[in-house]
Simulated scan of single mutants.
Amino acid sequence: MDHENMHSVSVAGVIIDDQGRALLIQRRDNGHWEAPGGILERDEDIVSGLLREVREETGLEVEPVALTGVYKNMPRGIVALVFRCRAVGGQLTENDESRAFRWANADQVRELASEAFAVRVLDAMSMHHAPAIRQHDGTHLLNVTHSYL
């Protein structure tokens, strides 16, 4: 297998509260603000991985509502599937991966998160019918004019 051409798949859950705000976590490893999520394990289905990652990073149990975007980090070969979710149980709990939580409106998301991660949350907060499909370099969006199918 050509390891240079391999990809990994990650999932993220954008949890929206009843005020329309999204939950951001502050990652313990780099201090960045993002939606909770992570890399799928090889033997794990997409929804199970989403539920596991969100629970591990937040302490919340969620229900996925809709796939809101597919994003590719071009240099690293990571494809991320992002879902709008609603919390159905649990409570926010700091852990080894998350050191803080914040419920943020769209303007606050833009201020806190890098462009490549803010857009995932903003896409999930909007009510587009088709999932967004975007590429980025880890920080900035690429080919912005071709955002939707």
Rank of each mutant, 00 (worst) to 15 (best):
G59S: 05
R99Q: 15
G77K: 02
G138C: 12
E94V: 14
V47F: 05
Q19M: 07
V119G: 00
L23N: 01
W33M: 03
G59E: 01
G37L: 00
M125N: 01
M6F: 10
M74F: 12
A22T: 09
V119P: 01
L141I: 14
L67Q: 11
S10Q: 13
S126C: 10
E61W: 02
Q91D: 13
M1C: 09
I39Q: 06
E41C: 04
S10I: 07
V62L: 07
L60D: 08
H128C: 13
M127P: 01
L24F: 05
E61H: 09
V65M: 07
V119E: 06
E57R: 06
R42H: 12
G90K: 04
L141S: 04
N143P: 06
F117P: 00
V79R: 08
V62I: 15
S147C: 08
H3V: 14
L141E: 08
Q26L: 02
L142E: 10
M74A: 13
I15G: 07
S114L: 09
H3N: 08
W103M: 05
C85H: 10
I39W: 00
R120W: 00
K72N: 10
G38E: 05
A113Y: 09
A22S: 13
S147A: 15
V62E: 04
D45M: 04
T145C: 10
R52N: 08
G13T: 04
A35G: 13
G77C: 03
G90S: 10
A87E: 14
M6S: 11
H128D: 15
L60T: 09
Q108C: 02
D123A: 13
I46S: 00
A80G: 10
Q135K: 15
P75Q: 12
V70T: 14
H129Y: 14
A35C: 11
V62T: 11
V14P: 04
S114E: 07
S126D: 14
V144E: 12
D2C: 05
I133M: 11
G13I: 02
S126G: 14
E44I: 07
S98G: 04
I78D: 08
F117A: 06
R28K: 15
L122R: 01
R76I: 07
V144Y: 05
V9A: 07
N30W: 03
R102E: 11
D2P: 10
G37H: 01
R21K: 15
G38F: 00
H128S: 15
N95E: 14
M74E: 14
A87M: 10
E34Q: 06
V82L: 05
S48G: 13
D43A: 15
G37T: 03
S10D: 13
D2T: 02
R27P: 04
A35S: 15
H136T: 04
A116V: 06
D123N: 12
L67T: 07
T145V: 14
Q108I: 03
Q26S: 10
S48N: 15
E56T: 04
T139I: 07
Y148D: 09
G138S: 09
H3T: 12
M6Q: 10
Y71K: 03
T93K: 13
I39F: 00
H7L: 14
G37I: 01
Q19N: 11
T145A: 14
N5D: 04
D18G: 05
R110K: 09
A118K: 00
Q19G: 03
D2E: 12
W33V: 02
